[in-house]
Design a protein around this nucleic acid. Structure first.
Lengths: 247, 247
DNA sequence: AAGTGGTCTAGACCACTCC
DNA sequence: GAGTGGTCTAGACCACTTG
């Protein structure tokens, strides 16, 4: 009945409760009957209010990791353990890959400065022919190529020079570190495409194979486009599995 | 400064507040500068507590419809109006279609009882060759075929006879009405495929065209599989556009 | 300094499921 | 009836942005 809550790191209590419960679930702590302690019990054992406990449980339920039944109790959703991938929660391909239990590696294929194409200028809301930084990369999982990405951002957004290895990290980190920009939301179009020569070669697929394509634009907190990207998933190597919990 | 809240229909106050604000946003009520009243102002004008207002605003923020900035205010995300489609919130193809401003129609292609295939039996967790009801349908938007669906559920789950027109509605309604089952969550695999003869014909596509494929299993609140389905999207006619809000 | 959203508490009542 | 999760309130303090 002691608190078990990690020491204060200026992190909201509800998040620490959420992470603690998630850790316990993944450790199989409730695997006997899949039932979690009641909210009241968690309040007492963790020393927090019920609202805080509920905030944590709501987050886990919206991830699909637990299900709650009024009048009954809260249960682990065993089908969502491990294989779970929630689109809304996955901004980083590296975490997507490592969530499937493999080692993620980013390889840079090409990095160039050039004028924006008409479509890119329109998506980024910059003047035609504005100079952009274009980066093509491939994400590997345990050495296997799984995602091909092509990212474009205006060079005017760069606030300071960056070292070459800066591009070997997720670009959201790059945006914060070298552009001073915080992302807030993005809009993504999901579609099916056929692998062209370059994509097929990089992802080690037959040319013309069907492939998942994701076109996305990332926006800052003050609603300006930061970056546009086209991504191709090699679904043979990386399943895009989503859990939808009823709202 | 009067309440404006719709009359009580046994619906949670927070949901009514959420819907009211959503209606106001869509009506362009805050389109001058895109700024919503502060939480405190909403509390007073709607006559509810701040926690209730925040529950409503949190839901809208997770839809991507509004953005909130600490120390500043709450703003409409104009990029998410109208075109928005949130995967987690879209269980019904009909609402997906009508959300794009078109008229949805369901057409039944085939309805049969037959033994389950090995894969179906495994997904539905029933004995091999168990009898299932298989339904193939096409969803049309303003008359254009946009989604091809193939649904399979064990006939043992049917609790009462159903009229033929029952299949012309979303199957989640069917599950409630004729199987007495409530769905709780589903797991979906997104992939790219090539249109085979039947799919191409039904969706009016060239054979071999790339097409989005969604394999899903729907589970009940007590964690049993209710239904498995394979769906094909004609993305030329129905864009799958998603908004991701940072959590 | 004032106002905003972010977090947390304590307490209440309700609807529902189980025994 | 006892216990569970679902909802709502009132109040407090904090971090942050803006003037």
């Amino acid at each position: 009945m002691k608190t078990d809550l990690p020491i204060d790191r200026h992190e909201p209590v509800a998040k620490r409760v959420r992470d603690l419960i998630r850790t316990r679930i993944n450790a199989g702590e409730y695997s006997l009957n899949g039932r979690l302690p009641s909210e009241a019990q968690l309040c007492v054992s963790l020393g927090v209010s019920r609202a805080t406990v509920r905030t944590a449980l709501e987050a886990l339920a919206s991830e699909g990791l637990i299900t709650r039944r009024q009048g009954d109790g809260t249960y682990v959703n065993r089908r969502a353990i491990g294989v779970m991938t929630r689109f809304e929660a996955n901004w980083e391909f590296t975490s997507l890959i490592e969530g499937s239990g493999r080692k993620a590696l980013i390889e840079i294929l090409c990095e160039e400065r050039r004028p924006a194409s008409p479509k890119e200028a329109s998506l980024l809301e910059v003047p035609k022919l504005e100079e952009v930084l274009a980066i093509r990369r491939v994400f590997k999982a345990d050495g296997l190529p799984v995602i091909y990405t092509s990212d474009v951002l205006p060079t005017a957004m760069l606030t300071e020079p960056y070292p070459p290895e800066a591009l070997s990290q997720p670009l959201l980190n790059f945006l914060e570190a070298y552009c001073g920009q915080h992302h807030l939301f993005n809009i993504a179009d999901v579609s099916a495409a056929l692998a062209d020569r370059e994509v097929a070669e990089v992802l080690d697929l037959p040319r013309g194979a069907p492939i998942l394509r994701l076109d996305e634009v990332i926006y800052s907190s003050d609603d300006r486009p930061l970056l546009c990207a086209v991504n191709f998933y090699n679904e043979k190597a990386l399943r895009l599995r989503l859990v939808r919990a009823r709202t």
